[in-house]
Amino acid sequence: MSNSATPSKKAAFGSVFSDKMIVAEYKDGQWSPGKITDVAPLQLHPAAHVLHYASTCFEGMKAFKMANGEVKIFRLDRHIARMAQSASLLHLPIPSPQELESMIREVVETNKADIPEPPGALYLRPTLIGTEANIGAAGAPSGEALFYVLVSPVGDYFSGSTKGLTIAIEDQEMRSTPGFGKAKTGGNYASALRHVMRAKKENQADQVLFCPGGDVQETGAANFFLIDDNRIMTKPLDASFLHGVTRDSIINLARSMGYEIIEKDFTVDELLEWIQHGEAALSGTAAMLSGVGQFILHGETHPVGNGEVGPNTQKLREALLAIQSGKAEDQFAWLK
């Protein structure tokens, strides 16, 4: 591996990389074949489109080692489709779905010796950037691009902690530009960062839940659920927030387990009423499903239960991990 640290809960998620990545270039209207290379700094012209006009998108997914030694990628097709959606919004050229799948599989096969045992996994970061050297192209897409896939052996992001997260509620400003929240692009994370850093400084919060005008949307890096013994409530998909693959997986899994799924717009007031008897959680590829222990709104703390990860959140998380690791039947055909 490229870093001296070993993939474990002690190493920061995404800070350890395998030695090999795959790279493809777009020039003169066509993509080059993917090529396995050493992980090393990229050579970019100082005028590269991505450096000035943020023409970039990415994905995050995981490959797991099964008990029989096979390696399978979780919901590869869904991640490829979402990356194509992001690229379209950014007017970036992108390899075909078949080419993307082939390159992702090749880089996983190349680095499969680095895959830790479940709940660890090989985290995959396909990335697409505009590389055309033209600082006059503020109003035009990049005619050249680079696609690459980094892989990172990761341990248990959740790390067995029972303490819930502290989430600050931002009830005025939005996380991203209207209509662009569903793109998995760096600019959306950058626009949320100032709110997250302020919340960490002022309230020791772990994340910020964006609720512009009181409309509960998502955090700076994850989708959001309200959960109780019988129901799960979450905002219906629209262009204001990321269409999370883990979100979709939790919804389908929970429905199969007998939970009623409620997809509706809801307010901060409804959230605060729900947590008097129920649970709250964040979903994403890294943490899967992480429980919330308390919310902070206008300096006031609103506890969720006893402040620990709720039993339904824990049950759903374990059920998802069991499918990902091959310990439970893959009834949805998510592993490829």
Results as ranks from 00 to 15, higher is better:
residue 7 P to L: 11
residue 8 S to T: 15
residue 10 K to I: 02
residue 13 F to A: 07
residue 14 G to C: 14
residue 26 Y to S: 00
residue 33 P to K: 12
residue 37 T to H: 10
residue 39 V to G: 06
residue 40 A to N: 08
residue 41 P to C: 10
residue 43 Q to A: 10
residue 43 Q to C: 04
residue 56 T to P: 00
residue 58 F to H: 09
residue 65 K to A: 01
residue 67 A to M: 12
residue 83 M to H: 12
residue 90 L to K: 04
residue 92 L to K: 12
residue 100 L to Y: 04
residue 102 S to K: 12
residue 103 M to E: 05
residue 104 I to D: 02
residue 108 V to A: 07
residue 119 P to S: 10
residue 119 P to N: 14
residue 123 Y to Q: 14
residue 124 L to Q: 13
residue 125 R to M: 05
residue 127 T to Q: 10
residue 138 A to R: 14
residue 143 G to I: 05
residue 145 A to W: 02
residue 149 V to K: 05
residue 158 F to D: 04
residue 173 E to S: 15
residue 177 T to Q: 13
residue 181 G to C: 04
residue 185 T to Q: 03
residue 187 G to D: 02
residue 190 A to N: 08
residue 190 A to P: 06
residue 201 K to E: 11
residue 202 E to I: 04
residue 212 P to H: 03
residue 214 G to N: 09
residue 217 Q to D: 03
residue 225 F to C: 11
residue 231 R to G: 01
residue 231 R to C: 02
residue 236 P to K: 10
residue 236 P to H: 06
residue 240 S to A: 14
residue 247 R to C: 12
residue 248 D to K: 10
residue 249 S to Y: 08
residue 250 I to H: 09
residue 254 A to K: 13
residue 262 I to G: 09
residue 265 D to Q: 09
residue 274 W to T: 07
residue 288 M to V: 15
residue 291 G to M: 02
residue 299 G to A: 09
residue 302 H to K: 05
residue 303 P to W: 03
residue 306 N to T: 08
residue 306 N to P: 03
residue 310 G to N: 02
residue 323 I to E: 06
residue 326 G to Q: 05
residue 327 K to E: 15
residue 327 K to M: 11
residue 336 K to Y: 07
